[in-house]
């Protein structure tokens, strides 16, 4: 394996590699986007020399770029700014080639490589950026954005610096992707309707299905209460046989739902609870004295005098 062209790096390589490990580990911890961006540029100072930089995200819906974070000599801008990437020949080239672009002196070299250029200035407009690097953020072969750093000094970056920024970019893409994939799926699942079956005017059956995490059980409680208000049912049969997990969240969910039903003046009955869930409910101090329970649905219906 060959070495990088080495002449330009400003500190011991060991120190840089250690800093890049710390950077990657810091941005992979789950948190919000602005925080991820701030951490990247904070930690990037230990890896590379730069004065300014930005992160842009590609917006497939509008086919535009959105600058989500920029920083110039310590002054941040976190207000998102959408713009047409076709105005910039450099960004268009990065998207088309999925490769990094580096300039030793942006001011001098840009017109040589890209005939006409309408760059969008940010930060201190009176100063001219010299050394400049933009690397595409890729997920598989999908282009999701651009990470850029630049300096008011010329000729700071070489092959090694390119590799460093590319490595950071691959982790940034991973962090962005993680947040997005989960957010989309969670949204999709939360938008699915919660099944509820009015057995008659008096009785409502609610099957508790899958995993009761916080997002879902708040939704579920709301739906049950709305239905009770609309239909004026007197009994709610909560069928727990379809629950997949019995973690503290599920136990908290069930006790909250039961209390809420009681408060609105209806009576609840728990059906088909598995032993592990019952143990959890008892440990959580849920008093089962005012809640009726039944082994399965036929038994529950029989207790209400139906069937």
């Amino acid at each position: 394996m060959t070495a990088y062209e080495s002449s330009r790096h400003h500190q011991p390589v060991e120190q840089t590699i250690l800093a890049i490990h710390e950077l990657i580990r810091a941005i992979l911890l789950p948190r919000d986007l602005a925080d991820v961006c701030r951490t990247i540029f904070e930690q990037l100072h230990h890896v590379l020399r730069f004065d300014a930089g930005f992160i842009e995200q590609y917006q497939p819906k509008t086919d535009t770029m959105q600058t989500i974070y920029s920083i110039d000599e310590g002054i941040e801008n976190v207000v998102p700014y959408a713009w047409d990437y076709r105005r910039s020949k450099v960004v268009t080239w990065i998207i088309a080639n999925q490769q990094l672009v580096r300039f030793d002196d942006l001011h001098e070299d840009l017109p040589k490589r890209f005939t006409v250029e309408n760059t969008r200035s940010f930060g201190q407009e009176e100063k001219r950026s010299r050394a400049w690097m933009s690397v595409p953020l890729l997920i598989g072969t999908d282009f999701v954005g651009v990470l850029n750093i630049q300096s008011y000094q010329p000729a700071l970056y070489g092959e090694f610096e390119e590799a460093l920024l590319s490595t950071v970019a691959s982790s940034v893409a991973l962090a962005l992707d993680n947040a997005q994939v989960l957010a989309e799926l969670e949204l999709e699942v939360s938008e699915l309707d919660i099944p509820r079956i009015p057995l008659s005017d008096d009785v409502l059956i609610v099957p508790l299905i899958g995993v009761l995490d916080r997002l879902r059980w708040e939704n579920l409680t709301h739906t049950i209460l709305e239905t009770l208000r609309e239909r004026g049912c007197e009994h709610v049969l909560l069928d727990g046989s379809g629950l997949l997990t019995f973690d503290p969240d599920a136990i908290q969910a069930i006790s909250t739902i039961v209390k809420a039903i009681e408060l609105i003046g209806a009576k609840s009955m728990l059906i088909g609870l598995r032993p592990s869930l019952i143990e959890g409910l008892i440990r959580a101090g849920i008093h089962l004295t005012n809640i009726r329970t039944a082994r399965d649905l036929p038994m529950g219906l029989a207790m209400l005098g139906i069937r």
Partner: peptide, 24 residues
């Protein structure tokens, strides 16, 4: 930086980048 240090650095960076590509 010495050549040796840069060879090692390249191996590490490529390892991280490649793992990133695969888990994507």
């Amino acid at each position: 930086p010495t050549t040796e240090a840069l060879v090692r650095a390249r191996a590490e960076l490529e390892c991280i980048q490649e793992f990133g590509r695969i888990i994507h």
